[in-house]
Structures are given as structure tokens and as C-alpha cells.
Amino acid sequence: MRTPPALELVGVSAGYGRIEVLHEVSLQVPAGSVFALLGPNGAGKSTTLQVASGDVVPTAGCLHVAGTHVNGSSPDALARAGVCRIPEGRGVFPNLTVVENLRMWTYAGGLTPAEVQERTFARFPKLGDRRGQLAGTLSGGEQQMLAMSRAIVADPDVLLLDEISMGLAPLVVAELYELVGSLAQEGISLLLVEQFARTALAVADYAAVMTQGRIAMVGQPGDVADFVSEAYLGGAA
């Protein structure tokens, strides 16, 4: 028996109000693989992830998680079922302390507060130094680490990462991608939306490029690379 894909979108259309953002998008994230979703701004990458996490309900098409049809499931139900999305920009509660943020991560994954802290601080010792500080006062990199710690402790089957490098210094990006690599090693299936194509393609098993709400191409990371620099910078890169 074949293992079903960890995540599958079949002909998904979705949007906000009257404006349709996704037009019949289909993609498969095979179990245990890293799938990079690239493309210019406004192409619908974030919306695709929001569909996968249940935040946006598709107007047409199907969403399957591990072979199960889950259209219409609420984000919190999907989170408890093993889908974890780290949203673009701010993935932390700014007016909660670091420790209180970690307490929130106990809703999915079944760890105790102590275990959550232990695992997080082992991975990001810097956060341990700032445990009593409000998350909103952390640096951008530290906030993103705190956001990513949810991926470590929620023990997800499918991890959806939305531009985790946005606005961060290269060194921090490198550290975060190290973590992405090791999560992939553990067998978590990853769907990765990234503006930095080179960074993402270096860890990806598969990649797709979206433009104008459609999948423009799917392939091996190498094939996609050339296509992407064309789409971003008009072919000069």
C-alpha cells in the first residue's frame, strides 16, 4: 500500500470575499518531504498555506491531510490534528511573556509546560535568557525563534512555514533554516513558502512556482531555480 501524501490540494479555488485569489490550485506534499512554494508577491502563496491550515475555506476543490478529506475543519481542530502553520510576520503573542507564549504551545502536541520550555530552551538558549520578557519586546530574530518553537513542540505531521525569513538578518535566517533541515530529518512533511528562492531551494525536495494564483511550474529544485530568478528580477540574475 502506498503512503498517501501528507498534504494534498486538489483543484482548490479560494479567496477573500468577492476576490478570488487561488484558481484551481493542485499540489501534493509527499510524506516526509520538503516542498518549497515560490513566487512573487500576491501570487497566492500565503493563501495556499491558509487553506491548508483551515483559516481560509476553499470555494471549490478538496483539501486532504494524510489522505483524509478535511474541508471545512476549523484551524484549531486541524492544529490539534497535527497541522502546524507558522504565519507570516508575527507568530507570537506580543503581550505575553516568552514563558506564557510557550504555555500556549501546549494546546497541541500534548507536552507539559515544563517539557515545552525544556525543548525550546535547549534549541534556542537565547530565549531561555529572556523567559520573563514580553514577546513583543524581543528582536525580530528572537520572535521568529519563539514562533518556530511551536513547530518543535507541537510535534506536527505537516508543518506550514510562511516566509520565516521575512525581515531577518542572514545569520538568523541561516539558524532558522538549520532548524528546518533538522525537522525535515525527523520526517516532518514541510510546505515552505519563501521569498528567498535560493535559501528555500537548498533544503527542498520539490518546488513549485506560483504566479497570479496558479501553479506555474512544478519540478526538482534545480529546474525551478532558473525559472524563479526570471520571475523576480526579470532575468538578470
Binding site: 525569513s165 542572514p170 535566517v173 541561516a174 533554516y177 538549520e178 528546518v180 533541515g181 519563501e194 521569498q195 528567498f196 528562492a197 535560493r198 535559501t199 528555500a200 537548498a202 533544503v203 524563479v228 530568478s229 523576480y232 528580477l233 540574475a237
Partner: peptide, 11 residues
Amino acid sequence: QAAYLGAEAGA
């Protein structure tokens, strides 16, 4: 180019 495409070193 690095700003748009990121650095491969990251991974």
C-alpha cells in the same frame, strides 16, 4: 539579488 533570492549558505 541576495535580498530577493536569499543566500544558499543559509541551508
